[in-house]
Design a protein around this nucleic acid. Structure first.
Lengths: 221, 221
DNA sequence: CCAGAAAAATGAATGACCGTTCATTTTTGA
DNA sequence: TCAAAAATGAACGGTCATTCATTTTTCTGG
């Protein structure tokens, strides 16, 4: 064991090494190229050819980093959803009112979806059938709604259905927004409708959904 | 003019004729095969090869009836949506309470979506990005919600957003249902949540969403 | 600093799939 | 009987994911 040349490494293994660093960089380039391609041309424009050309990397090299075309798409989605999820968690961490947490989360989610073209493609085109997307967003929505139910703030008979509706509404409102003349950000009305859906009174729903929205913390990456 | 041989035909033209009847039959066969293929293998399995094989018709013949692959898919969707829409209209025609109309419509829609595999693929896989689907369902949802707003029954600030949410929720609830163990029909809970969303009080929403659901009239076809 | 082994990169070639076309054959109607 | 209409399916052209024999880069021990 301990074949590393000299540098005293603390625990198990942590020497980056030129090779590793370069490999990581290549992987990052491929993910970045995939993300960009998705933003510019949508999911159908993602071919191995376009990705590798954009990343300035040989076609064959792609398969040293990803199993298949689908694998890289899943990786991009997972990365984006996880990052946003963590930023939302950081934002709502200290809050105590479930309705406020739910409102801020859904507003930010919608706002992100209508502002960032990659999210636009992601949500609308890959949509609901995409495992990665629903698998990562679903649990978060469920959790936030469950908090409201447990604290007596929300009254829904079935959390999973309310969660699915939260998520599905996002898709269609966003789609409608993108196809319209993009007049006004629908985030507040979307959140207000959701609050009513989970049992918050209309007047209160209106007030909560229109509170000043704190900005999202930057991601740690 | 009047080149028809003999048969006294009333107005403009209405002689079916062997040719016309056969052509209609072929078109019907193609639509039917497309529908079946969609039910069995989903949208991506719809190729000209599979459709024509299933209909027992030559590949080339396909293009005597439809412009392209997309055209036949659109035709199937339009047909299905129109048929269901008319049945829903017939059902709710005599009703006066907007909440009941909205509830019955959404319940029937969800029930159809979770019962019929073609609708399943249609709604989930083609989903929200499909022009035909949203173009036909959207206006109906908007109309039903608008009736509620006009009669003071609903309070929503933006009908188009509420309409989009009605439709988008359908997708995701159905998707969740299909991926689960298909335990219980989510139609009632779905409708109840929607009623609350448009401003009906929780107690009333519960009552309305659980009224006995009249069966849908058969279609005229 | 060097040789040579191991790892990674490369891009041309492969093979599969699919929508669409069209020259030819079959069916229909008068 | 024959001309027009419809049907046919082989063939074309294009796209694209994936493979692999070869080249290039990196690492290691001397």
């Amino acid at each position: 064991m301990a074949t590393t040349t000299a540098t005293a490494n603390a625990a198990v293994a942590k020497a980056p090494g030129r090779r590793e660093r370069k490999a990581e960089e290549t992987r990052r380039r491929l993910l970045e190229a995939t993300r960009e391609q998705m933003a510019e041309g949508g999911p159908e424009s993602i071919t191995i050819q376009t990705i590798t050309a954009k990343a300035d990397i040989g076609q064959g090299t792609f398969y040293n980093y990803f199993e298949s075309r689908d694998a890289v798409i899943d990786a991009v989605i997972l990365d984006m959803v996880e990052t946003l999820g963590q930023r939302l968690d950081a934002l709502t961490h200290g809050m105590s009112d479930a309705a406020e947490i739910y409102s801020f989360s859904t507003r930010h989610l919608m706002h992100t979806a209508v502002s960032d073209p990659v999210w636009g493609w992601l949500v609308v085109r890959l949509g609901i059938a995409q495992e990665g997307l629903i698998g990562a967003l679903g649990p978060r929505a469920s959790r936030d709604i469950q908090i409201g139910v447990d604290s007596g703030r929300f009254t829904v008979e079935d959390v999973s259905i309310a969660s699915a509706m939260t998520f599905g509404s996002l898709l269609s409102v966003m789609q409608a927004y993108l196809q319209s003349d993009r007049k006004s950000d629908p985030s507040e009305l979307y959140a207000e409708n959701l609050l009513r859906m989970v049992g918050v009174s209309p007047t209160e729903a209106h007030e909560i959904a229109n509170r000043p929205l704190p900005t999202l913390p930057e991601s740690k990456n």
